[in-house]
């Protein structure tokens, strides 16, 4: 049996879905309508595009941000708008694409942000600026904290407060060990000495008496037995109510403030 040519194979495949009359008209040449398969493809593409644009528009519509967010907002941040932290990058979209392309081609020295700027410590300070922070993150940029930077990157707020996790603190308790391993106190007020706690690596006990940023109005306990349990602290990290006194030295602002000079 002679093998069929390409045209014959195509006609066979069409016969199942197209009427013989239509096939005849098409074979007549130039004046006939477009092939039905092309019509179906174009209609399908059009419908697909419309659906995609509609879906994209719905995702970007105001109030639908939760659909595109990578996870639940952290505790205390539930009411924040996306733009509270995600600020527009400099330039128009066209300038950003242009600069990004030039950077990829080696025609520009520095990369640019596309769409939004990277969220940085300054975005956190905009609401959480505290003059008397016991552990301000910028201090960890000092050379002597290089080991701590390798371990937990404490120079960035987001290292311990990773957003979209639905929690309050995302680092594991016990991180004090990275800087206070050689702690010495001349007049130790605690009944179990700090030296003992360090020697026995009881790092989960630290936050029972000291809140990390020092923003709660509280007096440290002098008896280890009176300290807040590490379990309560761990639950607080996860999002439970604070085990520390309610009075704060400086509550967070409800809306961001531009602190840059």
């Amino acid at each position: 049996m002679k093998p069929k040519g390409p045209r014959e194979r195509q006609d066979d495949s069409l016969s199942a879905v197209v009427s013989p009359e239509a096939v005849t008209r098409r074979s007549n040449g130039r004046r006939g309508p477009a092939p039905p398969s092309n019509i179906r493809r174009r209609v399908g593409t059009g419908v697909g595009l419309c659906l995609a644009i509609t879906a994209w528009g719905a995702l970007l519509a105001p109030g639908q941000e939760h659909l595109t967010a990578p996870g639940r907002m952290n505790v205390g941040h539930e009411q924040l708008a996306c733009t509270s932290c995600h600020r527009s990058a400099p330039g128009s979209v066209r300038q950003q694409i242009q600069a990004g392309t030039r950077f990829l081609l080696g025609l520009r020295d520095t990369p640019v942000d596309f769409g939004f700027r990277e969220v940085e410590n300054g975005d956190c300070y905009a609401c959480h600026e505290r003059p008397f922070d016991r552990h301000p993150v910028h201090r960890f940029n000092e050379p002597r904290f290089s080991d701590a930077r390798k371990a937990i990157a404490p120079q960035q707020c987001a290292s311990c407060h990773r957003e979209h996790s639905g929690r309050r603190v995302t680092v594991q308790p016990g991180y004090c060990q990275h800087c206070h391993g050689e702690l010495q106190m001349k007049n130790d007020p605690l009944d179990v000495s700090h030296a003992t706690l360090v020697r026995e690596s009881l790092w989960l006990s630290c936050l029972g008496c000291h809140d990390f940023h020092g923003n709660h109005v509280m007096k440290s306990s002098t008896r280890l037995a009176d300290a807040i349990s590490s379990l309560r602290v761990a639950r607080y990290f996860q999002g439970d109510a604070s085990p520390y006194p309610k009075q704060l030295k400086k509550p967070a602002r409800q809306e961001r403030q531009n602190l840059e000079h």
């Binding site: 400099p90 330039g91 128009s92 066209r94 300038q95 950003q96 242009q98 600069a99 030039r102 520009r108 020295d109 520095t110 640019v112």
Partner: peptide
């Protein structure tokens, strides 16, 4: 294109 984004 519009003017390119400046770089330091």
């Amino acid at each position: 294109a519009p003017p390119p984004l400046p770089e330091a």
